[in-house]
Simulated scan of single mutants.
Amino acid sequence: MHKKSIAIYGRAFNASVVPYVEQLFAYLKNKDIHIYIHADFYNSLKVQYDCSSDFLMYHNHEDLPQDIMFLLSLGGDGTMLSAVSQVRDLGIPIAGINFGRLGFLASINKADMIQALDDIFAGNYTLQPRDLIEVSGNDKAIFGNENYALNDITVFRHDTSSMITINATLDGELLNSYWADGIIIATPTGSTAYSLSCGGPIIMPGSGNFVITPISPHNLNVRPLIISANSVLELEIESRTDKYVLSCDSKTEMLDRTTKLRLQRAPFQINLIRLPSDSYFSTLREKLLWGLDVRNY
């Protein structure tokens, strides 16, 4: 019988969660499965505690086995975003155990991880495909082969207190000239992240839309705009300085204002593992405290 394999990805975390990590590896050892662990993460684990040395190693997307059942991300939502670059277009499902705080993406509570993993190994879960945004520049490669975002792509002003002007064209037609501190282009996944804090709407995954959310716009009648994920958005930046900042989830680059941007839906999706108890609306209610009387807090 072919032995099952999973991959584990994570980043350095607080020592307080080490007992949960020990519990996790003991559980997986009893399952008798191959464990491929990210080499950098393993090296950080060895500093935290005397962990096992019989793991199989992988270093990046290139040597990640394609026949693994799923990739397990240990950390918060930021770790989940980073895990996307491990899987890329392989279609490997991702599950996240939340060692962080909010946990929209890393939705498995660390106290419930054993039951959650029992469900996953029993096949008691669904896959939720999530769209990504891809960004490219007219005069240079941006972010190498990791030029996509699960949450959002954002343009910021750099090294000035003055606003920048972002001339936006949608499918070849002038949309608007945003005079603001910056602009966010978010997926439905990212609609509950930075975009939400800037007044953007919450968009359900699978709705086939992205949202453009200005950051502190000068004109208060410039509001967030939902666009089709099939559209192509082009941005040209005007600034008093020669540079602007582009972020792509957790990655950032400094670009010349001569660099024009092209944004569109990425040619692949990420598959998130969702358990029966983990519905989108229950997550919203829990994380955003919907239905609670805030006067009692």
Rank of each mutant, 00 (worst) to 15 (best):
G144C: 10
T160I: 06
V155K: 07
R157S: 07
T154F: 00
R157N: 09
S136L: 10
S177C: 11
T169D: 15
T154W: 02
A168S: 14
S136G: 14
N167I: 11
E134N: 10
M163I: 14
Y148I: 00
K140W: 07
H158P: 00
N151M: 09
L170I: 04
I133G: 03
R130L: 03
I133K: 02
G182L: 06
T165G: 12
N147T: 03
G182E: 05
T169A: 10
G137A: 05
S162K: 13
I133H: 02
F156R: 03
L170A: 06
R130D: 01
V155P: 08
D152E: 15
F156V: 02
V135G: 00
D171F: 04
Y148P: 01
L174N: 13
E146W: 05
L170D: 02
L175K: 06
W179F: 10
V135F: 01
V135T: 03
Y178V: 05
H158V: 06
N138D: 14
L170H: 03
W179C: 04
G144D: 12
L132T: 04
A149G: 11
G137F: 00
R130H: 09
L150H: 08
I164V: 12
T169E: 15
L132V: 02
T160Q: 04
N151S: 08
G144R: 09
E173K: 14
V155D: 05
N147D: 15
T169H: 12
A141Y: 10
L174F: 14
L170T: 02
N167A: 15
S161W: 06
S162F: 08
